[in-house]
């Protein structure tokens, strides 16, 4: 194809590829909606349902009975406070101790580096239930059973792998030439870190923070094995609602209540993640 021909074909093929890309997008969006949303919509309908039996397409009886029940309970408010502070404290502590470690693993050489790096795998590789039972015995001697800080400590350990590993690859992939150029131009190391390194690893860090926060918030085993009877979190309440209340509706209402703040959080983080990813995609 000659150059002028290519130039002429340019806009048309560009439009075609955009159309094709959007066709792919619509397909992905449709399939994903079906897969992800069907159970969620179901839960949402259940939250407003009092009786729904096969084969009715529309529930036999709608109502807000379970909303009143859930909202008027003192334990729901208490559990919400406990869960939020637990997740916030664990995430903050985790970021505080893991991000420097992550940087060190990515950029520095020191004895035992690979061994230490691999040691974080044990957090995930050993089946949790067996592990926590052993830990519970150890914690008992330390007086950390039924203690908020005991739960924080062990939750903190279970977040380590995400917080160290996810940013490591990002730190490794930071463009070293840019850093060197900035340093050659007289920028201080801190300044280089702040304006060159950090922006490049921020998407990975925010992904790690998001995962840590959410995983901590929705964790049940540790909260039960280490935290009972003192520490009562929202998911524990949900387990109790669903397992022992006979009706799914309490759990459905509670999660619907949680989805509102979750969605806001997700949108905030998404904008953050998306802007970075899209920004780089456009060559910025």
């Amino acid at each position: 194809m000659s150059m002028p021909a290519l130039r002429r074909a340019g806009p048309a093929s560009l439009g075609l590829s955009r159309l094709r890309a959007n066709g792919a997008g619509i397909t992905i969006a449709a399939l994903l909606s079906l897969f992800i949303l069907t159970p969620l919509v179901n839960v949402a309908i259940w939250a407003f349902t009092e009786i729904w039996r096969y084969p009715a397409v529309i529930p036999q009886k709608f109502g807000f009975r379970f909303w009143g029940d859930v909202l008027s309970r003192g334990d729901v408010h208490l559990a919400m406070t406990t869960s939020l502070s637990l997740a916030a404290i664990v995430t903050a502590l985790s970021a505080l101790i893991c991000l420097p470690a992550s940087y060190a693993f990515a950029r520095m050489d020191f004895p035992g580096r690979n061994l230490f790096f691999m040691s974080f795998l044990t957090v995930y590789a050993f089946p949790k239930f067996g592990l926590y039972i052993t830990i519970a015995t150890i914690f008992l001697g330390l007086g950390l059973i039924g203690n908020f800080w005991g739960v924080v400590l062990i939750q903190l350990v279970s977040t380590l792998m995400f917080m160290v590993w996810i940013p490591v690859s990002a730190f490794q992939n930071v463009d070293r030439r840019q850093e060197e150029a900035a340093r050659d131009a007289g920028a201080s190391p801190l300044r280089v870190f702040w304006s060159i390194t950090l922006p490049q690893v921020l998407p990975a860090i925010s992904a790690a923070v998001l995962l840590t926060f959410v995983n901590t918030f929705y964790e049940t085993e540790v909260a039960w094995l280490i935290g009972a009877p003192e520490v009562r979190t929202v998911p524990l309440l949900m387990v109790r609602f669903i397992n022992s209340e006979l009706v799914v509706q309490y759990g459905a209402v509670l999660s619907l209540l949680l989805w509102v703040p979750s969605f806001v959080l997700l949108m905030l983080v998404r904008r953050f993640l998306g802007a970075q990813a899209l920004g780089r995609a456009l060559g910025a």
């Binding site: 397992n243 759990g251 969605f263």
Partner: peptide
């Protein structure tokens, strides 16, 4: 799905 606990 991050915001949906497995029990639910």
């Amino acid at each position: 799905p991050l915001f949906v606990p497995s029990i639910l």
